[in-house]
Design a protein around this nucleic acid. Structure first.
Lengths: 188, 188
DNA sequence: GGATTATATATCAATTTGATATATCGTGCA
DNA sequence: TGCACGATATATCAAATTGATATATAATCC
C-alpha cells in the first residue's frame, strides 16, 4: 500500500484510540511521545491528506461553516486499522538517533575542555528536568496498570527513565574525565 | 554564515582531523559516529559542494584524469575551522531521537503482547551485538587516553555503553511485564 | 477593552533519507 | 588468464521531514 512512512503510522496509532485533529496529533507527539519521537506540522498535515486519499482515515467532523473556526476531526477506518496491525506485527524496526551533544563532544578536541563541559552541563540540565516529569508519570501510571492500554504507556515511560538515568551517570563521569585532564595538551 | 546545517558541521569536524573524500566521510559516520549519529550520501555530497562554494573547505586532490578513478579529497580551510569552533562553543544542542521500537511498544495495545515482545527481542539482539563492539573499543581506548583526541572518542564510547546497558535492562523488565500480563484483556 | 496565549490549518525552502545508477579497482579462485 | 564479487567513489532522485512562517479565531487574564 506504500503507506509505510513513519508519520502515517504515528497518526494511525493515535487515531486507533480516539478521533483527533492535526493539532491534537501534534500535542500528543509533543506530550506522551516526546521521549522517543518527534514530528512537526509540516509532516502531519500532508500525511493526513495522503491517508485520507487512500481511505485509511476519514474526516468525521469539519466545521468551517458560518462563524466557526475550521476544525477537521479524523477517524481511523478498518483499512487503516489493518495497516496499523501489519506494521505492529513486523518486529524489525529502525531507530534513528542524532545527538548533537555527542557530536560536539566527539569533535571537542578542536576547542578547549571548557566548551565540552558547558555542552554537557546544558544537556544534563534538560535531562534532569525531563526525568522529574517522567518519574511523576511513572508514579501515576503504577496505580492504573490494571488497564491494558496503560501498560504500554508505562513501558515507554520506564524506557525514558532508564535511559535518562544513564545519561546522567554519563554526564558526571564525562565531566570528571574532562576536568581531570583540563590542562592536557590543547592545540589552541 | 547560514552554514548551520548539521551535515556541514559533521564534515568540518571530520576534516579538522584529516583530509577525506565524501566516501571516507560516510565510512566515518557509519563507523565511530554510528552510536550517536546517522547520515547518507544524499546529504554528504550536496553539503560538500555547498561548503566548498562558501570557502569553508577546499579540494586538495582530484584525480579524474586519464585512466584514473574519480576521487575528490577535501581539506578544511581556516574559515571552516573558525565556523567549527563557533559551533563547538555554543553549548545549546538539539538531540533528535526517533525510536520506531518504542513507537510500536506505545501502540502495542492494538495487537497482542506477542507482537510487542517480538519487537523488543529484535531490538535487544541488535543492542547486544553493538554493545560487544563498544566494549572492545573501550578496552582499546583505555590504553591510549594519554592522547587528547582519544579522550573525546572515549567519552562517546562510554556514552554508548551506558545507554545500551540501560536499553538491555529495559528489555528484560518490559518483557517480564508483558509476559506477566500476556492474557490480559486483548481487544482482538 | 486590550493583550496574550491556545487552538487550528496550511505552506515553503532547505535538508535528509533511502534507493538507485554508474563506473572503477582489488582480490580471490578456478 | 579470466571473471565474479566486494569495496571504492561520485552523483542524483522522489519522497519525507524540519523548522519557520502566515493566517485566523477562541479563550483567558488583568
Amino acid at each position: 500500500m506504500a503507506n509505510d512512512n513513519k508519520m502515517n503510522l504515528v497518526i494511525l496509532g493515535l487515531l486507533d484510540h480516539e478521533d483527533l485533529t492535526g493539532y491534537d496529533i501534534k500535542k500528543r507527539i509533543d506530550g506522551s511521545l516526546r521521549y522517543f519521537w518527534k514530528g512537526s506540522f509540516g509532516s502531519i498535515y500532508p500525511a493526513l491528506s495522503s491517508l485520507e486519499e487512500n481511505g485509511l482515515i476519514k474526516r468525521v467532523k469539519s466545521k468551517s461553516n458560518a462563524s466557526g473556526r475550521e476544525r477537521i476531526v479524523y477517524s481511523i477506518t478498518s483499512e487503516g486499522r489493518e495497516s496499523l496491525l501489519g506494521w505492529l506485527t513486523e518486529s524489525k524496526s529502525s531507530n534513528s538517533l542524532k545527538y548533537e551533544t555527542l557530536l560536539k563532544v566527539y569533535f571537542g578536541g578542536a576547542a578547549d575542555n571548557v566548551a565540552a563541559i558547558a555542552t554537557i552541563n546544558e544537556f544534563e540540565k534538560e535531562v534532569e528536568a525531563d526525568l522529574a516529569v517522567l518519574r511523576t508519570y511513572k508514579d501515576n501510571l503504577s496505580k492504573v496498570l490494571n488497564e491494558r492500554d496503560h501498560v504500554f504507556y508505562y513501558l515507554t515511560v520506564i524506557f525514558g527513565i532508564e535511559t535518562y538515568e544513564a545519561y546522567l551517570r554519563w554526564c558526571s563521569e564525562a565531566k570528571r574525565i574532562l576536568l581531570d585532564r583540563k590542562y592536557m595538551g590543547n592545540k589552541r
